[in-house]
């Protein structure tokens, strides 16, 4: 698949998505900007470059399409903005985020039939199992496409992930690429203080996974790592990417702590954030 966008164009789109994120969260004075900003580069790379899928019409089964499952559903702003910017639904709908009668629920849901969402997430630890089930259905259907799944690092504290990690390796689910957003932060503080978790790659490798490192806030590195991850598919082992990111990336005052995990900027902070994120393809 040839790239439709240059690295610089993808960076521009990522800037626009980051603008959307802070504006969406500001408009409703709730939501999770920190992790959303940190994972923006990955989602833009997936939806604008790496994944082979049809933006329209949305097909729930995703036959002959690459599929993305967001397990850490609280970073819904980045998912919604990226999908809208990719043409899956109208960007104007971003203004309804978290409001009554919106399809853009606080956490992603299929219940309101928002195109692009295949599973509800928010209660943590469930997405990798669902992604693995989707990967199995693709294998049964001789569908050669790939399933991608993003989790948070704090989310690995949920035991169900380790059931899925064990299962996917034992069953040689090799059409699955998982990402762990290693930003080192969770609601109550740094993951180091709350539940120290070291040697992630060794742990996954001991379970039988292939592992990669990635700078999740460097678009060129994201693209090359994703290319490498795809080249490792089909050899009997699932792939996990340890994705180093900065929570709040792109907005200086949101970076460097867990403080912006789940709070909204005020008017002044919004103006400050937007001044750091040049408008690229037009605000919604």
């Amino acid at each position: 698949m040839t790239s439709k966008y240059t690295v610089n164009q993808l960076k521009d789109i990522a800037n626009q998505v980051r603008r959307d994120i802070v504006r969406m969260v500001h408009a409703v004075q709730s939501g999770h900007p920190g992790g959303s900003l940190g994972c923006t580069d990955l989602l833009v790379a997936l939806y604008f470059d790496v994944m082979d899928y049809k933006a329209k019409p949305f097909n729930m089964k995703g036959e002959d399409e690459d599929i993305f499952i967001l397990s850490n559903g609280h970073i819904s702003p980045v998912l919604y903005s990226t999908m809208a910017r990719a043409g899956i639904f109208d960007v104007a709908e971003l203004s309804t985020f978290r409001k009554l009668n919106s399809r853009l629920q606080g956490h992603p849901a299929t219940h309101e039939h928002l195109e692009g969402v295949r599973i509800a997430s928010g209660s943590l630890g469930q997405g990798l199992s669902v992604a693995t089930g989707l990967a199995l259905s693709k294998r049964m259907n001789q569908d050669p496409k790939t399933v991608f799944c993003l989790m948070g690092d704090g989310e690995l504290q949920e035991g169900q992930n380790w059931e899925a990690i064990m299962f996917a390796a034992h069953n040689k689910v090799d059409n699955l690429i998982a990402f762990v957003d290693f930003n080192g932060q969770q609601i109550d503080g740094s993951t180091k203080n709350i539940m120290g978790f070291t040697e992630m790659k060794n742990k996954f490798e001991a379970f039988g996974w292939q592992t990669l490192d990635m700078d999740g806030n460097n678009m060129a590195d994201v693209l090359s790592t994703l290319m490498q991850a795809k080249s490792m598919l089909g050899n009997g082992k699932p792939v996990v990417v340890k994705m180093k990111t900065e929570m709040g990336y792109g907005v200086d005052f949101m970076m460097g702590s867990h403080e912006w995990h789940g709070i909204a900027p005020n008017d002044e902070q919004l103006a400050n954030a937007l001044a750091q994120l040049p408008e690229a393809i037009g605000d919604y």
Binding site: K61, S129, T132, L136, G159, F167
Partner: peptide, 18 residues
Amino acid sequence: GIAEANMIGLAAGLATGG
């Protein structure tokens, strides 16, 4: 295996795939 939570998630994924 003895992993019922994962089983339910797998089933949800399989159902999504048809």
